[in-house]
């Protein structure tokens, strides 16, 4: 009623036409149309959940918890046995290496770009780091296979193996296609994620804190170390978790560099040994599957991967929203 009056004020002619009514339904239609389209997210989630749960049902029914904890992987008919445990561990180990190497590098980059770099350098260098995220995974894999793995082999793996080969995690003869190489390529690949979020977190630290710290005679590094990083620590933690999520799900580069081991041989007992992550197992083996049960095993590994990735990302999601609420409190 009110809206009608208002309309006639502005468009004296519009009330003459039945168009007014259509316009009202137009709004109604539009709102509901986009609301339905927005449900696409729910649909994708639902389809994924359905395909993965029904697809993995055969293998889970057959092996139960043995599918998760088992280490054997044998598709030969009549003697089939599938266990995902080595790949779960392989995923954790490579992601761990990625964080161990990638997080300090990312933090260094973020700190340098926000706190230290001359103004003229900030934008172009920041852009270069962002470009790392644009390179497709398969090209990381190609470069890793023909270039990077020989750097690692000659300058890192062989020296470490020569002097520290007696430590179990460095045992074996390295040849560059192993958990360590896969972890290192992941480290490079998570840098843009972790660095760009950390950069935002560090930029969001109020200047008054830096000034207070400088005023009591702190050096630049002390201001960063004791004040900036400490104030932004929960945000940086969120960045690290998101980096972990990225590392866990990354497929192609890892599949090309990890050495493609299966079964008990894929247990990550040494960093210089071929291994397998959940994602790389699926990429390397899915098309080779010959039986329904074997396909189901790959789908089952996909389900475990999805659950792990969901746990990490949902965790990061809650963490980040909570952090921003807490931070809001501090600032106000």
């Amino acid at each position: 009623m009110q809206s009608h009056r208002w309309k006639t004020l502005n468009h004296p002619t519009s009330s003459k036409f039945f168009g007014t009514k259509i316009k009202v339904t137009g709004d109604f239609l539009f709102k509901n149309l986009v609301a339905i389209v927005a449900a696409s997210a729910l649909v994708i989630l639902f389809i994924t959940a359905y395909v993965l749960s029904t697809g993995s049902a055969p293998v889970v029914e057959r092996f139960g918890s043995g599918f998760f904890f088992g280490t054997a992987w044998n598709p030969v008919e009549g003697r089939e046995i599938f266990g995902a445990f080595p790949y779960v561990l392989g995923t954790l180990v490579t992601s761990g290496i990625a964080l161990f190497i990638g997080v300090p590098l990312s933090l260094g980059i973020a700190i340098f770009l926000v706190e230290m770099a001359p103004k003229a350098l900030r934008v172009p260098v920041g852009y270069l780091v962002e470009l790392l995220a644009a390179v497709p995974s398969v090209i990381y894999g190609l470069w890793g296979l023909f270039v990077f793995r020989f750097w690692l082999l000659n300058y890192v793996e062989i020296p470490i193996s020569t002097y520290f080969g007696w430590i179990p995690i460095f045992s074996g003869t390295p040849f560059g296609l192993d958990l360590f190489t896969a972890g290192c390529i992941l480290a490079i690949m998570i840098i843009p994620t972790v660095a760009s979020i950390s950069k935002e977190v560090i930029s969001a630290v109020p200047n008054s804190i830096r000034e207070g710290a400088y005023s009591i005679g702190a050096t630049k590094w002390e201001v960063i170390r004791h004040w900036v990083l400490s104030y932004g620590r929960s945000g940086i933690f969120g960045a690290v978790i998101l980096g972990l999520g990225r590392a866990v799900g990354e497929t192609m580069a890892v599949a090309m560099l990890i050495g493609n081991a299966t079964g008990p041989a894929a247990m990550p007992t040494s960093l210089f040994k071929p291994g397998q992550t959940m994602a790389s197992l699926i990429a390397n083996g899915f098309l080779e599957a010959t039986s329904k049960l074997e396909v189901s095993a790959y789908v089952g590994v996909g389900l475990i991967l999805l659950l792990l990735s969901l746990m990490i990302n949902v965790g990061a999601h809650f963490l980040v929203t909570r952090i921003f609420k807490v931070k809001g409190g501090i600032v106000e």
Binding site: P206, S208, I209, E211, G212, A213, Y214, S215, I216, G217, A218, E222, H226, W227, S230, Y231, I330
Partner: peptide
């Protein structure tokens, strides 16, 4: 800055530190 201290327009105690540590921060450095 150690010899010439400063107090700012808006109070800016360090939010991540306790009252004690706010006072002790400079000495700890």
């Amino acid at each position: 800055r150690r010899r010439v201290g400063m107090v700012f327009q808006k109070p800016n105690p360090f939010p991540t530190m306790s009252i004690y540590d706010n006072v002790a921060a400079g000495l700890k450095l």
